[in-house]
Amino acid sequence: MSNLVTALNGASDANGIATITEVPLQGMITLRGDLSKAAIKTAATTAAGVDMPGQSQANMNGASGITWMSTDELLILCPYGDVAANLATMTKALAKTHALAVDVSDARASFTVSGPNARDVMAKLVPVDLAKGSFEPGMFRRTRMAQVAAAFWMTDADTFQIVCFRSVADYVFEVLKIAAQPGSEVDFL
């Protein structure tokens, strides 16, 4: 059995104005198909144990949840060890539906940015209005983070969780560290 590690082996940095931590192994399943179909909704909600999110929303419950990636794509989060079982259940439930469910846990990296200045740090890197009231917990956004694609949501008022491709995990971690350099508060948002 190989030794399972995350992209940066749990790297974290607390020297800056926000704490950046790599999220431990997180199960992720991409589900594509017609999101209006009952079979797809049921498969997603059964695997994640939360309700279907609306457009550009994320429904989270601890390490489980569903995020709305696009009009025909969901990212389902679940505990890492449950992925195989969930995938088998979903594949069986979706056998007669035009849909695709794939385990992408090891193809992604995930980070949290937390602290009172988390909004500042994120706002330096993404072309998104992160002012209070414009972006709040429950919302979900796919965008670019500096030069790479990323998606994020807020787990609480001071914490962002980011999902990016594993191949750019080091870039994302470094660019977050730069955006969180000590003394770089913007205090605008």
């Binding site: 457009q55 550009s56 696009s70 072309p127 998104v128």
Partner: peptide
């Protein structure tokens, strides 16, 4: 018009 997101051109 697909996902309803308004963003500047570098996201497109």
């Amino acid at each position: 018009p697909c996902c309803g997101v308004t963003a500047e051109e570098t996201e497109f």
